[in-house]
Amino acid sequence: MLKVLKQGFFTTLQDQGRFGYKDKGVPVSGSMDTYSTKVINALLENNISAPVIEITMTGPTLEFTADSYICIGGAEFLVTLNTSPISLYKVYKVKSGDVLSYAKLNKGLRAYLAIKGGFKSNMVLNSASFYFPITNKRCFKNSDEIGYVECKDFNPKISHLKINSLLNTNVLEVAKGPEYNLLNKNQIKGLFTTLFSVSNQYDRMAYQLQETIEGLSYSMLTSATLPGTIQLTPSGKLIILMKDGQTTGGYPRVLQLTDKAISVLAQKKFGDNVILKLL
């Protein structure tokens, strides 16, 4: 078990999300920064869909009650195992009684913690990803316990990886969305020449950008939306849907983020700059 001593701001369990329920209105959910979670699961030689802990803004304090191996990724926090600071993308052995603490956030927004074999949780609609009220829990609370299987011995093929971090870029690569062809020259210019910043409206459902462009009034029938869909409202706001975003919408879908760009944006917070780059 992993005991939650301090819950942090918004600490959840996430995997690759729910597949096959979009036509019933169920969001995909899953890890916001899949790029980071894939790497840490790979280092622990876990299945790609092994559940990891997603940590947002203010990290938790966690105590291990069985031996295993862990790896952390994503945002750069000051993380200590007992009293020693630990590094990103490196496999560490943990013993029963060890305490992992997240302190200052230095760069990015969302950090990930993976354990050998993955964290255990009730699967709801084939996924461990938290999404209230599909899952009973919205996020972990103090004194919650998170299951994992003890692992006494593991020799990783690679124990430390230097990765090309996505935390240093502010470029969001996009493809044209289904309603891109409704845009005029001025709107296209606005999309690709504006230095945007993340507004205070940002969470796992959607990121709204602070700067506006010329609006688009178009009466369209409700149609599917995806994580990474950029909607343009009549007042010129840009709303980027993320992993917990609703599955349908009525605003023109002008652009679509690549998978990598979703991971880049997942690490941005209020005030951070982003620019859009058409592939």
Partner: peptide, 18 residues
């Protein structure tokens, strides 16, 4: 038939509720 990112494609019928 229009592109919708790396993983998706959209097929649209006439813009009417029918």
């Amino acid at each position: 038939i229009r592109p919708f990112g790396q993983h998706a494609i959209l097929i649209e019928w006439p813009n009417r509720v029918e």
